[in-house]
Design a binder for these strands. Structure first.
Lengths: 202, 202
DNA sequence: CGTGAAAAAGAACGATCATTCGTTTTTATT
DNA sequence: AATAAAAACGAATGATCGTTCTTTTTCACG
């Protein structure tokens, strides 16, 4: 006989995941203890283990959620008439959310190289993001709005390298200032995509 | 009464550091045990603790050594007549050394946000690298060999962001291929530095 | 060689951690 | 309200890890 409504169950599970996310970002996956997470979530070990069967499951849960949110944000990227403006907005959007989330992305990226389960999830995130940009750039090239020197696959590779660089630096360098690096990076990306002259305001 | 010559002492300490580096790159700082390192170095815990007083000291030792090697390579960067070619070589050089070293760089970068001692070392590495490029770009601008749109500080920031992106991706993405992304990234960097037309062969 | 101190070994210790389990509390249903 | 099962609690457990300590080995010097 079920006791808690599915919504409540989901709510508590999310609550624990939030707490775990904060702890993981603060100390890394392998230096946060289950007690840390219990304290942060104000929940007993016994309760925690009802929602997540192990620390591994908690890590995987965090990754899954990151994937969902990533996918969401990318999916609704406004592909307006001003490409570089849209990319600038997207970049700003990422740099605006809390440091702890960006640290978590980096943490997940590293964990993915060592934990097969996380690796799978990460690979699917990567695939989604890469696919989104690939489709976008392909469409833009077909429409004659960009004229890149390299083929789209290569352009996407380079673009994602620059984006990851920004993510990494924003998470790791305390002196990082998005307002300063974003303009030159957009200039560099523009050299990659080569938007055609009348792209800005058609 | 000293028993082992300073060279032997240094040799053994380096040997342990090598082993620790491999372990740390493989499993991360906090998932490698002292026993792992002992096994890899073929040394007993008792012996290890003669050379390094704690796991922390071992981590710090790894960072220090990374710093020294980084500094070395950057210091002897050939600033020939072909700037973009020199940068391409530098990039290739980094992508050529073993994955385990690049993973270690990433690991150190994250650890630096959480471990004050490592943070200090990392900050000094960063400062050195940034300084090297700042000096180089400043000189090149004064000589009229580059004409960047942004001021040198900003250009260095953006440049290092792209470089870090490459380091990160090369360490974390198993499908990463330096030969593919290097050319477009150099194109992007060229848009940042804007080398003057006759830079290539004067 | 013999010696004494440094170096290495590796079993053992104490602390910490993930996880479990017996008990108590909560809550949807009667 | 009464109840029965789910949910939560938190002390206990067993495993693991960093570190220490006692013993053995190695080695420069007499």
């Amino acid at each position: 006989m079920a006791k808690l409504s599915p919504e409540t169950l989901r709510e508590r599970s999310d609550h624990i995941l939030d707490a775990a996310g904060r702890c993981f970002a603060r100390a890394g996956f392998h230096r946060t203890t289950m007690q840390d997470i219990c304290r942060e979530a104000e929940v007993s070990p016994g309760a925690l283990y009802i929602y997540f069967t192990s620390k591994e499951a908690l890590i995987a849960g965090i990754c899954e959620r990151e994937r969902a949110e990533f996918a969401n944000r990318f999916a609704q990227m406004p592909v307006g008439s001003d490409l570089m403006g849209a990319l600038a907005n997207l970049g700003r959007q990422f740099l605006e959310d809390p440091l702890h989330r960006r640290l978590l992305c980096v943490e997940v990226g590293i964990e993915a190289t060592r934990n097969p389960k996380v690796g799978e999830i990460q690979k699917s995130v990567e695939g989604f993001i890469r696919g989104s940009f690939h489709d976008l750039f392909t469409k833009l090239e077909a429409e004659g709005r960009i004229a890149p020197t390299f083929d789209i696959d290569t352009v996407v590779d380079a673009f994602m390298t620059i984006a990851d660089g920004m993510l990494w630096r924003s998470a790791v360098d305390e002196k990082f200032n998005g307002d300063v690096v974003l303009p030159p990076l957009l200039q560099a990306i523009a050299a990659l995509l080569r938007p055609v002259a009348d792209e800005a305001k058609p």
